[in-house]
Structures are given as C-alpha cells and as structure tokens.
C-alpha cells in the first residue's frame, strides 16, 4: 500500500520550512487554521501569522497591503471561500497588481465529503483561471504539495494552489517537478489521459485496467493548470487517437476546458471529459461521491474506450 498523506499537513510543514529561511513569509487565515494547517506555522512564528476571523474578503485585500510592503504572503481558507467569496478582492486588488500573494486553498472538490455542496468547490479552477497574471497548481499528492508550495514561493506573482481535504495516495516516480511542465507517468500512444489532483491516481488505475485489455494509455499529470503545458497537449493529440481529461471539478472552465482550448486551436482531436457535469455536490463519503459523480477509474476506462471505438 502506497503512502497516504494529507496535502494540508504537508502544506503546514512546508510553510515552517519556508518561514525559517525567509523572514518575509507571512501567513493569513480566516478562522480555519486548524483545518488548513496554517496553525502549524502560527505556532512556530506567531508574530508572522494573522487570523482575520470569518472575514475572507478582508483577509484577501489585506494580503495585497502586505505584499505592497515586500512580504511573501500565503493566504489560506477553504477553496470555496478563497475563490468565491473573495473573488473581487483576488481579481482587483491581488492579481491586477501582480502581487506576491499565494492563495493556498484546501477542501477543494467533491471529496470534501459529508459537509456537502456549500463546502465543495467545483468551480474554483474556473474562477481563478480567467484572471490575468494568476498561476494555478493542483498537486496530485502529499510530496507534490511541497513542490507546489516551493514553486509558488520561488516564482513572482499571484498563485492559486488547490489542495484537498482527504488523504492522497503518494504517486511514485513522477520525475522532477517543474512549474508549467506536465509529467508523463505512463507511456502509450493509443489514448492520452490528462488529470490533476486526486484523479491522477484514478487515471493510473484506469491505465492499468486498459493495459489488461491491450490498450496503452499515456497518463499525464497536469499539475500546473496555468501556465498550461501546451506542448504536452499538442504532442499527445498528434501521437494518440484522442484525449480524456479528468478532474475533480466542473467540466466547465477547469482543466478540461484548458486542454480543449489548446486542442481546438491547434490540433483538433476527440476529447472526452471526466468531471462534474453542471451539478452541485452533496453529502456523502468521498468514495461514494466519486462514484455518484462518475469520477472513478471505471469512468475513465469507459471514456478511453469510447474514444477508441470511433
């Protein structure tokens, strides 16, 4: 059994690492520091941690004030609040100024589970992706979360890093993490499967099942949604018979849309989307919800076969 890690545990620990070497790192939260794990940083560096209470809009606009004074600001809350509640503050006061603000949001996607629809961000990637200057990373597991946080810290400008609530299975042998550079996890020229977040693991399981049927799938971890690795998309479109895109997000506006835009403009090929189809979430255990919303390896296999049947 592979290692299981909470991405947010890794986030909290990585913040401490960063805080030790860079005194300009400051961390903001809005009454969720125990859930997002920014509380770990708060314990270590209380003078550089600020809790704003249940007031995400103020927190987000305040991050801009800090950044204007040279601070490297990490802002955390749940994905639904960071990107929805405070969207105007992100657009006009953080990203328009191209400030060094790193929005690291947890509890994204349907796998939030029992809390239900109000807490399941299925639109957050779409909301952040339309904003100029914004960079977006969706790490697939615990170790990649550390890579994502370092990439956000070491590159200028605003970032949105999307983390989940549940434990994620560590994926071995991904190769080096480079911002904006996709990771090819399996080789194959029959069908390409692009995925991000916890659906990368589902994609790998699907590729295994496809292989049993004699189908070679190229699984690509698209951890950076923006800037998108266009070359990986164009290459896959040219070398395979079609593309499946998997994400724990609405099929509107997220990774699938990003890839479809590149495909439509450069290399028309059949693409199918495994994502949430214009629905709200609901309560349930993460595993049950992934099934209910057709986000499992089974659904990915079906999509891949559909592409090859044409």
């Amino acid at each position: 059994m592979a290692e299981l890690l909470y991405q947010r545990d890794v986030y909290g620990k990585t913040l401490i690492e960063l805080g030790k070497t860079n005194k300009d790192v400051i961390v903001l939260d809005a009454d969720l520091s125990s859930s997002t794990r920014t509380g770990l940083f708060a314990k270590e560096f209380p003078e550089r941690f600020f809790n704003f209470g249940v007031a995400e809009q103020n927190m987000m606009a305040t991050s801009a004030g800090f950044a204007s004074c040279g601070k490297l600001v990490f802002v955390s809350t749940f994905a639904i609040f960071a990107t929805g509640r405070a969207w105007d503050q992100v657009r006009n006061t953080v990203s328009y100024n191209n400030f060094n603000v790193k929005i690291v949001a947890t509890h994204a996607g349907i796998s939030v589970g029992p809390d239900g629809s109000s807490h399941q961000a299925l639109e957050d990637i779409a909301l952040m992706r339309v904003i100029p200057n914004m960079n977006i990373i969706v790490p697939c597991d615990g170790p990649q979360t550390r890579d994502a946080i370092f990439a956000a810290a070491n590159n200028p400008g605003p970032f949105y890093v999307r983390l989940g609530r549940a434990k994620a299975e560590t994926i071995e042998n991904k190769g080096e993490f480079k911002l904006g550079r996709a990771q090819e996890l399996t080789e194959g020229n029959d069908v390409a499967i692009f995925a991000c977040g916890i659906l990368v693991q589902e994609a790998l399981v699907a590729a295994g099942e496809l292989l049993n049927k004699g189908i070679k799938a190229r699984v690509i971890n698209m951890h950076t949604i923006k800037p998108l690795d266009r070359d990986a998309v164009i290459k896959a479109a040219g070398q395979t018979k079609g593309i499946v895109v998997c994400e724990e997000h609405s099929v509107i506006g997220g990774l699938a849309s990003s890839i479809d835009e590149v495909v439509a403009e450069n290399c028309p090929v059949k693409t199918l989307r495994v994502g949430v189809r214009n629905r709200y979430g609901q309560s349930g255990e993460p595993g049950q919800l992934l099934k209910e919303y057709n986000l499992t390896s089974f659904d990915i296999v079906k999509a891949a076969e559909k592409i090859l049947s044409k």
């Binding site: 809009q57 305040t62 801009a64 004030g65 004074c69 601070k71």
Partner: peptide
C-alpha cells in the same frame, strides 16, 4: 477594499 490594504501596510 482600501481599508484592508491599509491594514496590511500597517501590520507590515
């Protein structure tokens, strides 16, 4: 949003 911006500057 400006009062929040000022808050960040003040705390910095």
């Amino acid at each position: 949003q400006g009062l929040s911006v000022g808050l960040g500057m003040s705390l910095a």
